[in-house]
């Protein structure tokens, strides 16, 4: 199933689709950007489990790291963080 093809033209003719990270650069959809205050974060990992996009990864010490290439800015992480360690900041500010 895996294939290194990057475009339709390079793909062999098949009905199979290849698992690919970054089918779309969904970070461009974002209006508000979540920012984590590491000094407040208790590393509960709730923001990680609730992210619809898998755009939050857990570091070695369980602190969250946001991948802005793919985060759509939905704001669920900021809404769910029990200690309000995440704030949504308008892009461009």
């Amino acid at each position: 199933m895996s294939s290194s093809a990057k475009t339709r033209k390079e793909k062999p003719i098949t009905t199979l689709s290849s698992p690919t990270v970054g089918v779309d650069k969904t970070g461009f959809w974002r209006t508000f950007r979540p920012e984590v205050d590491g000094s407040k974060c208790t590393r509960c990992t709730l923001c990680w489990i609730y992210c619809p996009d898998g755009a939050i990864t857990r570091e070695e010490d369980d602190s969250p790291k946001i991948d802005y290439d793919y985060c759509k800015g939905c704001g669920i992480c900021a809404n769910e963080c029990p200690v309000k360690a995440i704030t949504m900041v308008r892009e461009g500010e």
Partner: peptide, 25 residues
């Protein structure tokens, strides 16, 4: 517990669900 869950993802980043999609979670 949540922390015991695998870090592996099989719904890859860059999927095109609407922002905040419950089915994607």
């Amino acid at each position: 517990s949540i922390k015991e869950l695998s870090k592996e993802e099989y719904l890859l980043k860059g999927h095109i669900a609407c922002a905040g999609c419950g089915p994607a979670i």
